[in-house]
Computed example of a mutant assay.
Amino acid sequence: MLEWSGERIIPKLMKPMNGMLLEHIARYYFATPYIQGRVLDIACGAGYGCHFVAKDRKREVHEVIGVDIDAATVAYASREYHHQKVTYVQGDALDPQLPEKLGAFDTILSFETIEHVADDRLFMDNLYNMLKPEGKLILSSPFGRGRGMPTSEPFHVHQLTPQEFEELFERFTEVEIYYQRGPTFEKPREGVRYFIGVAVCTK
């Protein structure tokens, strides 16, 4: 059995009103209108998101690939969140061979992942190379002091500034930036401080 560490979300071990759990689930609800075809959930964790996507978008989705770096997590996801359209794979988001191994996708989901990787540009290259033309990328990340700067979160390499976050998506043809506040998503409002950015990008 996996343990909830404060970073890896295990819904079955958490109270339903846990704020972090609600935030994570809300991202999948937010993304559902954009999800179709062959779907990649990179750093899928326990697998609840892949399972939700496969069920909620059963008419629009024909395959979901969930990738996580941790073998025990992949085994847990395969067992606890099995679905006929979902395959869980152990893999490293920074593996330069990942596009060759996994192929191309119509939709890529990347929630709260980029702050964990040392080379966010290589990570973005991998995602871009795996996305089909006109495919959608939905990516979220917490904001912080910036690339290369220390963070108070023990599992985060760094946390990008809002400007650095937006610069990640310059090569995409269309980009919409939203901000997450608890389980809600909105365009920026004056006087409101936001801690998490969410980008919806079209290749």
Rank of each mutant, 00 (worst) to 15 (best):
R147I: 14
N126F: 09
H83L: 10
E170R: 11
E23Y: 09
D95N: 12
R57W: 06
S140W: 06
F52I: 09
A118V: 13
V117F: 04
V192S: 02
P188R: 11
A31Y: 10
G47E: 05
F143S: 00
T151F: 05
K136V: 15
E112A: 06
I196N: 13
T87A: 08
M149S: 10
E112F: 06
P150N: 04
V53S: 03
Y194Q: 01
E164L: 03
A46R: 00
A72S: 12
E63T: 08
D70C: 10
C50M: 07
D70L: 08
Y29I: 13
E166H: 07
E112D: 15
E115R: 02
W4Y: 15
R147K: 14
H24A: 15
P142W: 00
E176Y: 05
R145P: 00
T184D: 12
G135C: 03
G47W: 06
W4H: 13
H24C: 14
G47L: 06
G45E: 05
F143L: 01
L21W: 05
R79L: 13
T184Y: 13
H116V: 00
G197S: 04
P150R: 02
D120E: 14
F155E: 14
M1N: 13
G144M: 02
F155W: 14
A46C: 14
E63Q: 13
G191A: 00
E112N: 08
C50L: 08
V67A: 08
D92G: 07
Q84L: 10
R8Q: 15
Y179M: 05
C201R: 01
S152V: 14
E80P: 00
I10W: 06
G6F: 00
W4D: 15
G66K: 07
C44P: 02
F169I: 11
G91K: 09
G148S: 09
H156T: 00
M14Y: 08
V67K: 02
D106K: 07
F172R: 01
I9P: 09
M124Y: 07
T161W: 02
F123E: 06
R57Q: 14
P162K: 02
F52C: 05
C201V: 15
P154K: 06
P150E: 10
V39Q: 03
T73V: 15
M149K: 14
G47K: 00
M130N: 10
S78F: 00
H116I: 01
I196D: 03
P188H: 02
